[in-house]
Every structure is written in C-alpha cells, then in structure tokens.
C-alpha cells in the first residue's frame, strides 16, 4: 500500500484546507495516510475556535471557502478517516505549549505522539510538510 504523511505546522487557513483535502482524497484512494499536527497548526484545532470559525490567518481564498460554506479542514479530515485508513496525530510538544489537553481539541485525533514516534510511523513513505 502506498504511504503518505502530512506534517501540518502552519496556522494559515488555506494551507490547512489544501493539506486536509489532499490527505482525505489519498485516504479514500486506498493509501495509508498519517497526519501530524504540530506548532502553529495545533491552535487551529482548538474545538472552541473551530466552532466559532475564529480562524487565525485567513486570506482571500479562505474567506471564499467560508462564504461558500465549503467543507472545512476538520470536516475533510473526519471524512478521510471515516472512509479510509487515515490517522491523525497531535504533537505532544505543541499541546504542552498551548497548555491545552486533547479533550479541548476537535475530535479528529487518534493519539498524541512525539516527533520520534511520528518519524517511525512515517518511515518508508512520502512526507509532505505544510
């Protein structure tokens, strides 16, 4: 099975959208997909923020995504998990830095791991850093 892993490190809304779309389509196409959410991206997975659609950095195209009510990155990841073998991991350091437990994040995460564990999970496949 082809394997692809995504590292989401940015808080730019459009980057999260693009990566989530690619990850979910890869997942439904039968690829093994792993997503690691770290650094600035972690703040974009806080449940309260997503519910209020209070995104940190939204550009022109991102505003259109919101205006046209296209599915959000969280929905795309959820869909990819439901219809494929995608796994989403939260970076333990990023959670510590923003001082929030996993229970305050949107419920897309399969586990909390460190970099070494994620490198092991991603080993042998392609890795895209977003």
């Amino acid at each position: 099975m082809d394997k692809i892993s995504f590292v989401l490190a940015s808080d730019e809304f459009e980057k999260l959208q693009a990566a989530a779309m690619m990850a979910s389509v890869a997942s439904v196409s039968g690829m093994e997909v792993n997503v690691f959410v770290t650094m600035a991206a972690m703040a974009c997975f806080v449940r309260e923020r997503v519910e209020r659609k209070d995104f940190l950095r939204v550009g022109e195209v991102g505003r259109k995504v919101l205006e046209k009510k296209a599915p959000l990155y969280v929905d795309l990841l959820t869909q990819g998990k439901m219809m494929g073998t995608m796994k989403v991991f939260a970076c333990s350091l990023a959670l510590d830095l923003i001082e929030k437990p996993l229970s305050e994040m949107v419920p897309v995460f399969d586990d909390v791991v460190g970099v070494a564990a994620f490198l092991g999970i991603a080993e042998g496949g392609q890795v895209l850093f977003v």
Binding site: M21, S24, V25, V28, K68, A70, P71, L76, Q79, M83
Partner: peptide, 15 residues
C-alpha cells in the same frame, strides 16, 4: 458541491 464533494459522495454510496 465543491471539490472533492462529488468524489466523496460517490465513495460513500459505492461502498
């Protein structure tokens, strides 16, 4: 629906 909506709908149904 916007991309990849139609593909996702197909997959949901075909399964």
């Amino acid at each position: 629906m916007y991309c990849p909506g139609p593909l996702m709908e197909l997959i949901k149904t075909i399964q």
